[in-house]
Amino acid sequence: MPEQLSFDLPVREALGRDDFFVSPANAEAVAMIEGWQGWPARKLLLIGPEDAGKTHLAHVWAVLSGARIIAARDLAGADIPALAQTHLAIEDCDSIAGDPDAEEALFHLHNLALAEGRSILMTASRPPRDWNLTLPDLASRMQGTPATILREPDDALLAAVLMKLMQDRQLSPTPNTIPYLVRRIDRSFAAAREVVAGLDALALETKSPITRHLATKLLDK
């Protein structure tokens, strides 16, 4: 068979439940998402590093619960009473620290949505104690929210993440490419995303398929 070359195709991120690989690094978080109707106080904080799958799980939960997904930074000026009428996934809550309007909006939305009997999933890259919130009442609400953690990947999860990132870019690596990358790159989600983007660019530049040889060429630069 002829080798498959790489083409400049759009990135389409797969965000369904079947696209999320479960390993010991994330099994607790997945169980919490799937068992969302049993959350204490009807809220959960999902914490994990960049590219760990927080947005993916937020979309999974939105399908399960019918929730609306909104970025925390977009809350300032939003119609808070209207938002509070549905379950909510609020992303990157730690990004609004120091923005008084966004902090105030999140505080009121949190209280109103729970009072309306809705559930709230919030995502962040760090625990609330490290957010440096300036609104004390919001800080206390966040620190009192039950949390689950997405941890850095083990080998099996890293391999699955690399494969998913390549599929999102419509890339088809040779069978020995993924195991080779797992042995060579840092065990982090950020490293996986960086190396797949690099391979995509190098494959386009050299008009080459995604192979172990191409991976070596990239990593040994």
Rank of each mutant, 00 (worst) to 15 (best):
L219P: 09
T86L: 01
G16Y: 03
A113R: 04
L133W: 12
L165K: 04
R68W: 01
R183M: 06
K43M: 02
L83M: 07
D130V: 03
A62E: 01
L15W: 08
D186Q: 13
I149L: 13
I120D: 09
F107S: 05
R12H: 15
E103L: 12
A197M: 07
D200M: 05
P127V: 08
R141Y: 00
R141C: 01
E205A: 09
Q143N: 03
M166W: 01
A52M: 09
N111R: 08
I210G: 00
H108C: 08
V30N: 01
P136T: 12
D130A: 10
G35D: 00
A82K: 15
M142N: 00
V161H: 12
P175V: 10
M1Y: 14
G77N: 04
A105R: 06
R212E: 02
M1D: 06
A160G: 04
G53T: 05
L150I: 11
V195M: 04
A201E: 11
A124E: 06
L44T: 03
A78D: 10
F20Q: 02
A84Q: 04
L150K: 07
P100H: 07
E3Y: 13
F107I: 03
L157I: 03
P175K: 05
A58V: 11
M32S: 15
D74L: 12
A147Y: 12
R42M: 13
I90K: 13
P40L: 12
A14W: 00
E152H: 08
G48C: 10
K54S: 13
D18I: 07
A84K: 13
I96N: 09
L44V: 11
G117A: 14
S188W: 08
T145L: 04
L109D: 09
P49Q: 15
G16P: 09
V63A: 13
K221P: 10
E116S: 12
V11W: 14
P2S: 15
R183K: 12
A139F: 00
G48R: 13
R169D: 04
A52E: 04
N111M: 05
P209W: 02
L109Y: 11
E152T: 06
A139S: 14
A72Q: 13
P127M: 05
D92M: 02
D155R: 11
E91V: 12
A192S: 14
A203Q: 00
A197P: 01
M32Y: 15
L171K: 03
I90R: 02
L219W: 03
D18V: 06
E116K: 06
P24Q: 07
A62P: 01
L165A: 05
R126P: 01
A31W: 02
V22D: 12
K164C: 10
V161R: 07
T148N: 07
W61N: 14
Q143A: 10
I47L: 10
G144C: 12
I210T: 01
D154E: 03
A82M: 13
P10S: 08
P209G: 02
H59F: 13
R73I: 11
W131Y: 01
V11S: 01
S95E: 09
A197N: 08
A89I: 06
I96V: 11
R193W: 10
R151H: 05
D74W: 11
L114C: 02
I69V: 05
D130G: 07
A192Q: 07
W61Y: 10
L114F: 05
H87C: 06
V60A: 09
Q4I: 13
R17L: 07
